[in-house]
Structures are given as structure tokens and as C-alpha cells.
């Protein structure tokens, strides 16, 4: 049972991570290839603080704030560069984060931070906390999408120039998207650090950013339920593939490729396609 609980907790944490990226990439259209750097900032901050005997929840919040601050800095950079240039800049942010952390003695260098204290909630209690966070993040996402801000995000993601011509403050909303998304990534990081209780630079390697982006894109960029489904699926996938351990990454890579090649809208796009198809076929039946 312990194993299932910890699996479920890990899955929920990746849902928080991918939904946080979905705010930036899905809602606001700013492709980020370095999102896991912010997860890392949250994880390092929170774990160093709880190790200094600061209460768990205060540490979580501090991790969120620090990740958000760095997020705003990267957001400011995103005002300068666009599209593919932005994607590569954010990728650069991931490598700068990694390269910095690896060389810092006080961050544990290559060995990372170990024996992170137990938050003292018990396994089920921790799962409940993480689940609560997922619910909050989902509600926040739904709320944002319905709000005026959500419409502005959509406008920016579809055509930035037109959005700013309509008098929308594109820069301000982009910064908000980055601040929100990265601080939630910091939350995911703090939770992750206290779930596995051992972090090191490779936990936040570039490939993890790709994994997060893959969850968003496979789910359907901007779709909340699609992203949740894809995150659950992709984070459990390695477990299901245990029996083909040697071919795990091959299957993973091929799957990413196949989804993009055959259903570029991801799961959400695929579902839409099915619904439209059914409507069309039922309509043609009526016509007959």
C-alpha cells in the first residue's frame, strides 16, 4: 500500500508541475523549455529551510515566492525575445540553473541535499495535502480561464501584436502568467523535495523540463483536463513499462513523436475530433 500511495503522490506532484506550465505555455502561449528550473528553485529553497528547522508550510511558501521572483525575471526576458528565441532562452535558464547549482558547495553541489526532514503528516496525510494542492491549482486554472485575464491570455497566445493593438497590456499579462506559473512550479518543487526527501541537480535536468512540456502538449496545449490526464498517464507510464524496462525510453520517445505526428492537438484535440466526428455522423443519419 505504501508504494501505491507514494506513486499517487508523485503523480499528483507532476500534475501540479504540468498545470503550472500550462498557465504559461497553454494559456498565454509562451513556450518554456526550462520550467523545471523553477521546480528546482522551490525544491532547494524549501528543503534548505526545513533543514534549518523552519516550519514546513512556511518553507513551502518561501519556495513559491522565490521561484515566482525568478519567474518574473525570466518573464521580463520574455518581453525582449519571442517565439523560438524565447523557447531557447528558457532552455538556457534551465542549464544556467543546473550549472550554478552543481558548482555551489552550500547547495550540496553534485551530491545535492539529502535527509530532508519529514513534514510529519504521515504518508496519507501528505497525499491529502498534495491532493488538496492539485484541487486548488485546478480551480485556479478554471477560474483564470473563465476570467477576463484568461481572455487576454488567449488573445496573446493567438496573436500578440493584435492583442497589443487592441490596447491590451501584453507585457503586464505575460509577467502575470510567468509569476503565477513559476510560483506554482515552486510549490510543486517544495512538495517534491519533501516527498522524496533527497534532491540533487539531475532531478531538475533539461529532460525533466521536456517531460513537463510533453505532459502539456500531449494533453493538448491549454486544455486543463487533457493536461491532467496526460500527466497522470505519462508519470505512471514508466511503472507500466517496468516489464519492458530496456525499451522504456524508446517507447516514451516514440509515443511523444507519434502523438505529435498523428494528433498534434494532443488528447484534447483527439477528443474534439471524435466528438465532431460523432456529431457529423449523427447529423448525416438525421439527414437521411
Amino acid at each position: 500500500m505504501g508504494f501505491e500511495i507514494s506513486l499517487l503522490t508523485a503523480m499528483m506532484i507532476s500534475i501540479i508541475g504540468s498545470l503550472s506550465l500550462n498557465l504559461i505555455t497553454g494559456f498565454c502561449g509562451q513556450v518554456s523549455l526550462g520550467h523545471v528550473a523553477f521546480v528546482g528553485i522551490g525544491a532547494y529553497t524549501a528543503s534548505l529551510m526545513t533543514k534549518a528547522a523552519i516550519p514546513f508550510f512556511a518553507a513551502l511558501v518561501a519556495g513559491m515566492i522565490l521561484a515566482g521572483i525568478f519567474g518574473i525575471i525570466v518573464g521580463l526576458a520574455s518581453l525582449r525575445v519571442r517565439h523560438d528565441f524565447l523557447a531557447i532562452t528558457t532552455m538556457g535558464v534551465n542549464f544556467v540553473f543546473l550549472g550554478f547549482v552543481r558548482q555551489q558547495e552550500w547547495l550540496g553541489g553534485e551530491l545535492g541535499v539529502s535527509s530532508i526532514p519529514d513534514p510529519g503528516l504521515g504518508k496519507l496525510g501528505f497525499l491529502a495535502l498534495v491532493f488538496g494542492c492539485v484541487v486548488l491549482v485546478v480551480l485556479l486554472s478554471v477560474q483564470i480561464r473563465r476570467s477576463w485575464m484568461g481572455y487576454v491570455f488567449k488573445a496573446i497566445s493567438e496573436d500578440e501584436d493584435t492583442a497589443s493593438m487592441l490596447g491590451l497590456d501584453v507585457s503586464q499579462y505575460k509577467l502575470i502568467a510567468f509569476a503565477l506559473g513559476t510560483s506554482l512550479a515552486g510549490l510543486a518543487g517544495g512538495l517534491y523535495a519533501h516527498h522524496v526527501r533527497f534532491i540533487y541537480p539531475d532531478s531538475f535536468a533539461f529532460v525533466e523540463s521536456i517531460t513537463l512540456l510533453a505532459m502539456v502538449v500531449v494533453g493538448g496545449n491549454g486544455s486543463i483536463w487533457g493536461v491532467i490526464l496526460a500527466s497522470a498517464f505519462l508519470s505512471l507510464l514508466p511503472q507500466w513499462f517496468q516489464f519492458v524496462d530496456d525499451y522504456k525510453l524508446l517507447l516514451y520517445g516514440s509515443l511523444l513523436f507519434a502523438v505529435m505526428r498523428f494528433s498534434p492537438g494532443g488528447l484534447a484535440g483527439f477528443a474534439q475530433l471524435l466528438i465532431n466526428h460523432n456529431r457529423k455522423s449523427s447529423k448525416s443519419k438525421v439527414d437521411k
Binding site: 505555455t25 513556450v31 517565439h83 523560438d84 523557447a87 521536456i210 512540456l213 510533453a214 502538449v217 496545449n221 516514451y252 520517445g253 516514440s254 509515443l255 511523444l256 513523436f257 507519434a258 502523438v259 505529435m260 505526428r261 498534434p264
Partner: peptide, 10 residues
């Protein structure tokens, strides 16, 4: 553009 990018990474 992110579609060919992710496909390419996969």
C-alpha cells in the same frame, strides 16, 4: 512550432 519541436525531441 511547438508541435514539430516536441515531435523532434521524441
Amino acid at each position: 512550432p511547438y508541435v514539430p519541436l516536441i515531435a523532434s525531441i521524441g
